[in-house]
Design a protein around this nucleic acid. Sequence first.
DNA 1: TCACCTGACACTTTTGAACTGA
DNA 2: ATCAGTTCAAAAGTGTCAGGTG
Length: 363
Amino acid sequence: MMMDQAHFGEYLLRQQMLHAASLGGLQPRVSLSAEPPSCEGRLLNGDLWRRFHDIGTEMIITKGGRRMFPSLRVSLSGLDPREEYCVLLELSLVGRRRWRWAGGAWAAAGGAEPQSPRRLMLHPDSPAPGHHWTANPVSFSKLKLTNNTMDAQGHMVLTSMHKYRPRVVVVRARDAAALAWGAPHAAFSFPETEFIAVTAYQNDRITKLKIDNNPFAKGFRACGQSKCKRKNVDGDSGVETQNESTDAKRPCSDAASSCSEEGSLRSSSPRSPPLIDSPTPLVTAPENTSPPPFYPPEMPYLNPLHMPIPYGMWPPPNMATNFLGSYWSALPPPAPSMPSPSTPPAPCRKLKSFTISALLGEG
DNA sequence: TCACCTGACACTTTTGAACTGA
DNA sequence: ATCAGTTCAAAAGTGTCAGGTG
């Protein structure tokens, strides 16, 4: 079990110092946990990730947002069952370089372009008690990636042809607004989850692997009607189609379903395929080799548009303004917005997808 | 000319409302 | 009246491809 609590604490502290400085000298309120680290993280679909990593994982980014496949699914343990935690996902730029596909391989191609700061997402279940996080897989399957720097949907804004590594951060905090002064608990990243953001697939092997494993791409499998139809449209004789249909009988389809993503956060859904456990512990990696990302001063999490955005149904709309205005800042905690034990909880409005406008009750 | 990006397309899966029966 | 199971249409998510952009 490896963890970088101290590293993360320093990272968080630096982030907040940045805010404090830019907010006019406010003192950051950071209370680093003094208890020994005990949290463990484990990548659940590590086998699938490794298959992609062996080839060189690529993730499509689109203007409207594209889901990650595979998605990040992590099992947490070692949390205090009664303590409240927030779980975040961060996408760290790996190396300060740009990549290009040349000669059938990825090669560095100059320095990195300026990055959007919005690469931190709050898990929709946050905050939740430790027993919730340890009892259920933590899935970020609904997360979407975009290259639209003007994105208002709360998607992760990435830059094409750049390499990123997901990083799961666990923070002990009763609500997202208190994240900034909550005690950081642990952070995990997994080398096999690194990927290069692209607007179109470069490596045919990645395309094939995605098609074979992503249920939504079933139509493009060798047995898929789409492929046959397209071939016919293209004037193909159909011989190749026949051959591929034979090949299509390989167990990829159903097996693919079993090793594909669940496509939803309903980990207990009867429709969901069984979880795939890694044969070996995959907890990494205190990023000893790659220090925690430190965003340049010109891009701190200051502007509300640059705030880390949750993509789930929390916080409730009445808290959204407060949330967007103070989250991840070094300001003192606002008056508690969460319902008190004596008052009934506000009805939870279910959002199909997290958007800022939805949070604000617009549209 | 090249590398990269965009939007329409056809396909599949997911989702949730409507319906049915116990 | 309630609940669980089924059905079905709409929404959402895929990669492909042709064309656009700088």
